[in-house]
Measured scan of single mutants.
Amino acid sequence: MSGIALSRLAQERKAWRKDHPFGFVAVPTKNPDGTMNLMNWECAIPGKKGTPWEGGLFKLRMLFKDDYPSSPPKCKFEPPLFHPNVYPSGTVCLSILEEDKDWRPAITIKQILLGIQELLNEPNIQDPAQAEAYTIYCQNRVEYEKRVRAQAKKFAPS
């Protein structure tokens, strides 16, 4: 494992614990031996107030490669969400998460999670990743928002 990646992720964890947006979660997972795995984080993004996503808490896994922060983490909703920019596998399609697009090593975990929260309610229809959600979003916004509200209710924190 890269010392650069681990040191950056340790800084990220410290900064997150000191200050993070209300309702968001970002925690490194534990290895079988109980030690912390900084390369694999369990996160959760709350649906934004005043949107059909409100009330939901959407679980996301963030996986970092050894060359982080040169390369972005892979962000994957578990379980996958109904959304035009979420692949059926759950992987998020967002330009700041793509090395050859808008990724920059200075982007923080907090910025990534806030960017994904923004994307939930403002899909990028130029870059669809899920045919069904994309089609319904474009053709029947009322039905799309109904499905999103049902999903938010399903993923409401207990």
Rank of each mutant, 00 (worst) to 15 (best):
L81D: 02
D127C: 00
G56A: 05
G23E: 09
P28T: 01
K30Y: 07
S7T: 11
V92A: 10
S7D: 06
Q151M: 02
A106F: 01
S158G: 06
S95W: 07
N40G: 04
C43S: 10
F155K: 06
K153R: 13
E12L: 05
I107D: 11
D33A: 03
L120R: 03
E99K: 11
P128Y: 02
L97F: 07
R149V: 09
G50M: 01
L38V: 09
F64I: 11
K146N: 11
T91Y: 10
L6D: 07
Q117R: 11
C43I: 02
R149L: 09
S70T: 12
L119A: 01
K76M: 13
K65P: 11
E122Y: 11
L113A: 13
C43L: 04
L63S: 14
D127I: 00
E132L: 09
L120Q: 05
V86A: 08
I116F: 07
K101W: 08
T108D: 10
S95C: 06
E122S: 11
K153Y: 05
Y68P: 03
Q11F: 07
A156T: 11
D66F: 09
N37I: 09
I116T: 13
L38K: 00
G90E: 00
G34V: 05
R147Y: 08
W103P: 00
A44T: 09
C43E: 08
K49N: 13
N31C: 11
A131N: 13
F64D: 05
Y134D: 06
V92D: 07
A5K: 06
P84Q: 01
F58E: 05
P32N: 13
L60K: 05
R104M: 03
K76D: 15
E99V: 11
I107F: 11
A133D: 03
D33Y: 03
N121Q: 13
R141Q: 13
E98C: 06
T35Q: 04
Y87N: 02
V25Q: 12
G56N: 02
R8Q: 06
M36A: 03
A152P: 01
P28A: 10
N85A: 08
R104A: 10
K30M: 09
G23K: 08
I96V: 14
C138I: 13
Q11K: 11
K59Q: 11
H83V: 03
K110L: 06
A15I: 10
L60N: 03
W16S: 05
V148C: 12
P28M: 05
K14S: 05
K14V: 09
P123E: 00
E54N: 04
E54H: 08
L94S: 08
F155R: 04
L63Q: 14
P80K: 10
W103R: 00
N140L: 02
G47L: 01
L6P: 07
N140I: 00
E118G: 10
I45S: 06
A133L: 07
G34M: 08
Y137C: 04
F58G: 05
K101N: 15
A106M: 00
K59I: 10
D67V: 09
I125M: 09
G50Y: 14
P88Y: 07
L94F: 10
S71A: 15
L119V: 07
E145T: 13
G47E: 02
A26E: 02
R149N: 09
E143Q: 11
A44W: 09
V27N: 08
N40H: 14
V27D: 01
N37M: 11
L6Q: 11
S7W: 08
G115T: 00
W53E: 04
D100S: 15
I125E: 06
L97R: 03
V86S: 10
Y134K: 04
I136Y: 11
A15E: 12
G55S: 10
A44C: 04
P123V: 08
E42R: 10
E118K: 10
G90F: 02
P52G: 14
Q139Y: 14
V27R: 14
K110D: 07
E132T: 08
L9N: 12
D66G: 11
I116W: 03
F22M: 01
D102I: 06
K14D: 04
K146G: 12
V27M: 14
I109E: 02
Y144D: 09
E99R: 10
K74Y: 15
F24N: 05
A106W: 02
W53H: 02
I45T: 10
N85Q: 02
S158M: 14
P105Y: 03
F155G: 07
G90L: 02
K154L: 12
V92Q: 01
W41H: 10
K146V: 13
Q151G: 06
A150K: 13
Y134R: 00
E78H: 12
A10M: 15
S71W: 14
K49Q: 10
Q11T: 14
E78K: 15
P21I: 01
Y144N: 03
G50I: 05
I116K: 00
K154I: 08
E118A: 09
G34K: 07
F82V: 03
C138W: 08
I4N: 06
G50C: 09
P123H: 01
A129K: 02
K49C: 07
P28W: 00
E145R: 14
I112G: 06
E143H: 10
I112Q: 13
M36G: 04
H83Q: 03
C75S: 12
L120S: 03
L119W: 10
F64A: 03
L94H: 00
L81W: 02
K18T: 07
E12R: 03
K14F: 07
P52E: 14
F82R: 00
R149A: 06
L114G: 12
S70F: 09
D127T: 15
N31S: 11
P32D: 14
L9Q: 03
L114M: 13
N124W: 09
L57T: 07
S95T: 09
G23A: 07
A44K: 15
N140S: 10
K59T: 12
L9P: 01
C43R: 00
F82C: 04
G50R: 13
Q130C: 08
E143F: 07
L57S: 09
S70A: 13
Q111S: 15
P21H: 05
P72M: 00
V148I: 15
V92I: 07
Q126C: 13
Q130P: 00
A152R: 01
P105H: 01
E145N: 15
V27A: 06
W53S: 00
E143M: 12
R13A: 03
A152V: 04
P84E: 02
P52S: 13
F22D: 06
A44P: 00
D33W: 07
L9I: 06
G23C: 00
P123D: 01
N40K: 11
K49G: 14
P79Q: 13
P72T: 05
P46H: 07
G47S: 01
